[in-house]
Structures are given as C-alpha cells and as structure tokens.
C-alpha cells in the first residue's frame, strides 16, 4: 500500500475546502460584541450550506438575515431533513407544506423552488445563526437532502440574484445621502480624509469635536458597523455612526430617530456587511 496522498478530485476538493472552513471557524475567537449562542455568518447560501455540512448530530439551525426574516433548518448527518422558509412560490410551498416540510421525497422541481427561496433569503448580507436541539421527531428512514445536492440546485439559480442592489460608494456616504432630509447638521470624517459637514452653524464645531472623541466614550470602536443614537429629555438626538475607521455624527429630532435607523439598516442590507 502506498503512503502517498493523492490530490483530491473535484468532490474531494469541495470537501477539503469545507473542512478547512470548519477548522478555521472552530479556531476563531468569538465575535466581539456578539451575544452568546449567536454566531455570525457571511452572506450567501454557500455559508449556510457549510453550516449544514458541518453538522453531524441532529440539531435545529435558526438563521436570521439582515431583514429580520428567519429560517429554521433541521439537519442531521450533513443532510437537510426539514426547512421552514418564507417566500416559496405558492405551488411549491404546498409541495413542502406551506414553506415547511420534509425534504426527503422532494422532487427536482421542489428542490429548485427551495434553492431559489434559500438564495433569496441569503442575498441580504450577513446572517446570524443559533443552534438548538431538534424539535421535530424525525424517523431514521428520513434521509433528507445531501449538501452536494443542495449546492447543485443552488448553482442553477444563483445567477438570478446577481443583480441584487448594492451600495454605490462608502456606507456612511450613501447612508448620509439617504437620511439627509431628516438631519439638522452633520459632520463626517472618512478614514484618512478630511472632515466635512453641513447644517446649523452653531452646532457644527461641537459635532466636529465629538467625532474624534466619541469612540473613547461610546462602544463604537469594535469591528463592524455601529450606530448609536442618544436622545435628550428635550427631544434632540445625537447620532454617531461608525464603519471601520469612517465616522459620521449628526443631530436630528428625536422623533426621526427610528426612521434614520431604518435607513441605516437598509444601507447595511445592501452592502452585506453583516451588521444590524
């Protein structure tokens, strides 16, 4: 018997890449600022299938995307047994039980519908995943669908999502353009760039000051985009936004803060940064 290790073939390469990903994930420290039990996943259905591929013992994966939609998968032995996903076409939804069902006997058409819904779910940018014990009682006869089959089904429909809207420009710049009508004054400092601002002149100098010192006080210096809105008893609000080393500070009416945060979430969803 030879001791030589043959280079992996096509499927072997995919498995090797998956194992490398799993080892890398296990050795990574927890995400800063994450809450226990929650892990972040990069955008894209591939990352989700890697999660299925890494599952041997039965468990339920609860995945939430940037839009707040949830997906539940029951997985065992690196095979998907059951899914609860919104957005399946109506006819296909019936086949899988109104968006949920046992995939064991799913035909090719059902798999295509499921893959399309899965890809649409994952186009929203980063996701979070939480693993819990399985809820369903699956019989040993259920074989589910292998990851390889799911990857194949996904490959056929991925191109439909290539035109997902994306940010045209730095996150904070696009965000500022979108919420400008709600802002009384703003000051921005792109990483390595100069400070710019506009709005009420009596508060611009102060806004410029705190742009530098805010991260000494507020928890915004961690990785990933962060937003903080402080509201005074008098109805004013101060927003501080960070994306890596880019900074933006603004003053707005407290009544507008939810609208501003909604636009922030919208921008994050478009840039797929795995934030809020």
């Amino acid at each position: 018997m030879s001791d030589a290790v043959s280079p992996p073939d096509g499927d072997g390469s995919a498995r090797l890449a998956s194992l490398t990903h799993m080892i890398g994930r296990l050795s990574r420290p927890p995400d800063p600022g994450s809450s226990p039990g929650l892990r972040s996943l990069p955008g894209g259905a591939g990352a989700l299938l890697d999660e299925v591929d890494a599952t041997v013992m039965a468990r339920r994966l609860l995945i939430r995307n940037q839009s707040g939609n949830e997906l539940a998968l029951e997985v065992r032995g690196r095979r998907l047994l059951w899914a609860d996903i919104a957005g399946l076409p109506e006819g296909r939804a019936d086949a899988l039980g109104a968006g949920r069902g046992t995939l064991t006997y799913a035909g090719a058409g059902d798999l295509e519908a499921f893959a399309a819904a899965l890809a649409a779910f994952c186009t929203d940018g980063g996701m979070t995943v939480r693993a819990t014990p399985p809820v369903r009682e699956s019989s040993l006869e259920e074989t589910g669908v292998s990851v390889a089959t799911l990857r194949h089904a996904l490959a056929g429909i991925q191109t439909q999502f290539d035109d997902t809207p994306t940010l045209e420009g730095p996150l904070l710049q696009v965000f500022l353009e979108r919420c400008a009508p709600l802002v009384r004054a703003w000051v921005a400092r792109p990483a390595g760039g100069s400070v710019t601002g506009d709005g009420a002149e009596d508060i611009l100098p102060g806004l410029g000051d705190i742009l530098i010192s805010a991260e000494d006080v507020l928890p915004i210096a961690q990785p990933g985009p962060h937003a903080i809105i402080l509201q005074t008893a008098g109805g004013d609000a101060l927003g501080v936004f960070a994306d890596n080393d880019d900074r933006l500070a603004m003053v707005l009416d407290a009544d507008d803060q939810e609208a501003v945060l909604s636009r922030w979430s919208g921008c994050l969803a478009m840039c797929g940064t795995g934030s809020t």
Partner: peptide, 15 residues
C-alpha cells in the same frame, strides 16, 4: 446639564 433619556445601540449582532 444635557440629560440623556434614551439611547439606541445598533451593533452587528444585536440592537
């Protein structure tokens, strides 16, 4: 003094 009544923190994995 400017009294803060409420704050919202939107971090990558929680709000």
């Amino acid at each position: 003094p400017h009294r803060l009544s409420q704050a919202i923190l939107a971090a990558p994995l929680q709000t």
